[in-house]
Write a protein that binds this DNA or RNA. Structure first.
Length: 217
DNA sequence: GGTAAGATCAGC
DNA sequence: CTGATCTTACCT
C-alpha cells in the first residue's frame, strides 16, 4: 500500500488491475470507503478484513478459506481480482468478499460492514422496518442480507457494468487497524480496517477458540 | 457414511 | 450465553 493509515490521500482508483497490484491488506485499503451497488441500493463500506491464501502463495494465511488449497467453495478466491466470493457462514449468513490477487493466486477482502447511502426502504424490507440506520448493514451477515446477496451471486464481476452487483470507488476516509474478528487461527494479525468515524462498524469479538492474546505485561 | 467446526446473528 | 442451520474437510 502507498498510503498511511488515517490519511486522506488514498487514490480513489478501483479496478481489477489496481487490486491485483496490491497485497490483500493493500487491497483492503482500496476497498474501504468504496460503494457497493445492487439494484437501487448503495452501501458505503466502512469495515473490511484482508485474507491471504495457501502455503504455495505469497501470503500464507491459516485463517483464510483458501489456506487448504483450491476447493469448490473457495475457487473464486483463486480467480481474477474483482470477482465476488460469497460463502454461507454457519449455514445462515451470506458473506461477501472481493477477490484481490492475480488469477491463480488466492487473496480476498471480506466486506464486514457498511452504511446505507441510498435505498433504505428496500434494505428495511429485508432487515426489518424498525431497524436503526446504523444496524442495517452492520456485520458481514447483515451486509449480505441488506444487499440480498445469495450463493447464486458467487463469482460475478464487480467491475462489469452489466453485473447485478457492482463496486465503485469513493473518496477515502480515516482508517483504523486491528485484528480480525472471530478467526481461530492467526487471530492477532492486524488485517482488519475500519472507518473510526462510522457507527456502523461491527463490534470486535475474539474467537473463544483462539489462543490467548499476547499480554501487555 | 458420520461428524465436528466454522471469517455469524438475534434473542434470552 | 445459546440455538439456528448447512457446507466443508477429514476421518472410518
Amino acid at each position: 500500500m502507498s498510503d498511511t493509515p488515517g490519511s486522506f490521500s488514498r487514490s480513489p482508483e478501483l479496478s481489477e488491475s489496481a487490486l491485483t497490484g496490491e497485497t490483500p491488506l493493500g487491497a483492503a485499503h482500496l476497498l474501504l470507503g468504496a460503494v457497493v451497488v445492487a439494484g437501487g441500493i448503495r452501501i458505503r463500506i466502512v469495515e473490511v478484513e484482508a485474507y491471504g491464501g495457501d502455503r504455495a502463495g505469497p501470503w500464507p494465511d491459516p485463517a483464510a478459506h483458501s489456506y487448504p488449497g483450491p476447493t469448490r467453495r473457495n475457487a473464486v478466491m483463486f480467480g481474477p481480482a474483482g470477482r465476488l466470493y460469497v460463502y454461507l457462514s454457519h449455514g445462515l449468513h451470506h458473506c461477501m468478499n472481493v477477490a484481490c490477487a492475480p488469477d491463480g493466486t488466492a487473496g480476498a477482502v471480506l466486506l464486514r460492514a457498511g452504511e446505507v447511502v441510498h435505498g433504505h426502504d428496500a434494505v428495511r424490507r429485508r432487515r426489518g422496518h424498525s431497524r436503526p440506520d446504523r444496524e442495517l448493514a452492520r456485520g458481514p451477515g447483515n451486509l449480505g442480507q441488506a444487499l440480498g446477496t445469495t450463493l447464486n451471486d458467487n463469482g460475478i464481476d464487480l467491475f462489469d457494468p452489466r453485473s447485478p452487483i457492482r463496486i465503485e470507488a469513493a473518496p477515502a476516509t480515516a482508517v483504523a487497524v486491528g485484528p480480525r474478528v472471530g478467526v481461530t487461527h492467526a487471530a492477532d494479525r492486524p488485517w482488519r480496517l475500519w472507518n473510526p468515524e462510522s457507527r456502523a462498524v461491527s463490534a470486535y469479538r475474539r474467537s473463544p477458540r483462539a489462543p490467548a492474546a499476547p499480554s501487555a505485561g
